[in-house]
Simulated assay, not measured.
Amino acid sequence: MKKTLFFLSLLIVFVFSMVYNGFGKVDHVQVSIEESTAFSKEEINEAVVAVKKKFKDFIGCTLTHIWYIEDKSMKITDDYMKYGNGSVNGVQQENVIVLLSSFKVGSSGGDGSLEPHSTYTDWNWIVVRDDHSDKWRVDDWGY
């Protein structure tokens, strides 16, 4: 009986630690937003929310900083519209915003595609919406 309780206790601790450590962490993210002529602060902040939501899929990772710099965003948006999904999905350029981020990867390496125990900087998040009145959604990410 004692062995059963001991193993049951270990199992509960293991499951709890997997659940707690399993999702990407977005609790203490530094957010920096540069002035924009293309988007309001509210629109940019709504795009940040979409990125944070998607980042929770990055198992064992911690988002540390997310930022918007209009010049960089516009350059990456141009490339997305010419060579990326924007060239085929019908999204209008005014409904595309690019945010940049830094994040730390834990021992798991996220989904296995990230280098464990590393930091990624200038990671792109291409966030789109169908129309000015629609919610933002992450369409692509990476370098």
Rank of each mutant, 00 (worst) to 15 (best):
K2R: 09
F6Q: 14
L8R: 00
L8H: 05
L10F: 12
V19D: 02
Y20W: 04
N21C: 09
N21F: 01
G24L: 00
D27R: 07
D27W: 04
H28Y: 12
V29T: 15
V29R: 02
Q30V: 09
V31S: 10
V31W: 04
S32N: 09
T37M: 03
F39L: 10
K41T: 14
K41P: 10
E42K: 12
E43L: 00
I44A: 10
N45M: 07
N45H: 14
A47L: 01
A50M: 03
A50C: 01
K56I: 02
K56E: 09
I59N: 12
T62C: 03
T62M: 05
H65Y: 13
I66H: 07
I69P: 00
M74H: 07
M74D: 13
T77R: 11
T77S: 15
D79W: 00
D79E: 02
Y80V: 06
M81W: 04
Y83A: 14
G84S: 01
N85K: 06
G90K: 08
G90R: 03
V91K: 05
E94A: 06
E94L: 02
N95D: 08
N95L: 05
V96P: 00
V96R: 07
I97T: 15
L100E: 08
V105I: 08
S107D: 06
S108R: 06
G112M: 01
L114V: 02
L114T: 05
E115P: 03
H117D: 15
H117R: 12
T121E: 07
W123L: 07
W125T: 08
D130A: 10
D131H: 12
H132S: 15
S133V: 13
W136Y: 10
R137T: 13
D139C: 02
D140E: 13
